[in-house]
Design a protein around this nucleic acid. Sequence first.
DNA 1: GAAGAAATGTAGTGTACGCTCCAATATGTA
DNA 2: TACATATTGGAGCGTACACTACATTTCTTC
Lengths: 190, 190
Amino acid sequence: MGRYRVGLETRERILSATRRLLSEVGVDGVTLKAITDQARVGAGSFYNLFDSKEEAVFEVVREAIEAVDPDPDGEGTDTLADLVDAFVTFMTGSSPIARIYLQLAVGRGLTDRAIATRVIRSHRTRVDRFTDAWLREDPTLTPEAAERRAQTMLAALTGLGLSVLLDETFDMRAHALELLPSSAVSSAAS
Amino acid sequence: MGRYRVGLETRERILSATRRLLSEVGVDGVTLKAITDQARVGAGSFYNLFDSKEEAVFEVVREAIEAVDPDPDGEGTDTLADLVDAFVTFMTGSSPIARIYLQLAVGRGLTDRAIATRVIRSHRTRVDRFTDAWLREDPTLTPEAAERRAQTMLAALTGLGLSVLLDETFDMRAHALELLPSSAVSSAAS
DNA sequence: GAAGAAATGTAGTGTACGCTCCAATATGTA
DNA sequence: TACATATTGGAGCGTACACTACATTTCTTC
């Protein structure tokens, strides 16, 4: 599966259709039939390329998160301000996927063990990124203190993201700046 | 419907069952059969008292959101540390309401306007509470700055609450202390 | 205690959905 | 060209689900 050119093209069509439907009808409204109709593909083709409907949805969300990564190659050059900025952009940008991500992570992750595991794992790698950035920002921190700050900062950003999704007049960026140490704020403003 | 004593009792049994199931299997996992089995009631009885399944779920949600409202007869003497402590206790306590509240606020509030409005309103009153505490903590703050800090702190607490619900080994209290200004931390430790 | 209204349980009904099966066809490789 | 493997569509399967119809029982009132 997924080794011939046409198969890869079909896969892309399916992901596009899923992405589009997620933003139009929400996570609960996406049915397999809607996806396959939209992608002009039979159910058999779908299951030739994906193990389940969930798989396609996850893939779309994963790609959306990746798309706003300030350092996709993991070169360790991103600052705290960069990371915060990327998160804010993800949440306030035009893509509706942030909403889907939170719905999945919270609405489902809270009861579905499999989803919780996925969410925690992706969260884990993000915490590491923030921890490294904290250490670069303030080398006097112990690794434990840096990680604690990373966790708190990420949680705060998630909470702020929730606020802005619930109330679109909420100024997430202004609030997010509160989270940065003062030295990083001034460099972000430059 | 719902005019005889037994009917009202049945109604309560149904709401209890719904509440319990919401916390155990989540919003999407609640089926009519589960509710009626749990409440030891037939489907006919259910529909004699409620117009639809949603009706019962919504009622439970309404009550859960109400329960999260801050104490209305607070005297305005609580410190930031007190408020943070109360929030942490609510999130890490044994009651499943926190989980239900977050699931509904996020899982539904993100798509259902009516629920979003409710969530925002109860959030609003909590922000005011935190704003006052900030002003007491640091009287040099402008009201705007105090409110911004209150919003950020509350969002952070919500995010931390989410973390602890997803991963129960997460030490929410330790992280929440990070959010307090250093003066308040020392007074909280005393 | 009679009568009417409310409550109850059960056995369905209709439907929407995720997914499988499989025969036919297209694609890549030597 | 011949062969193996991937891809395709879509009929249809199994199931889960919200909800209904209705005969029976219980409750309340006068």
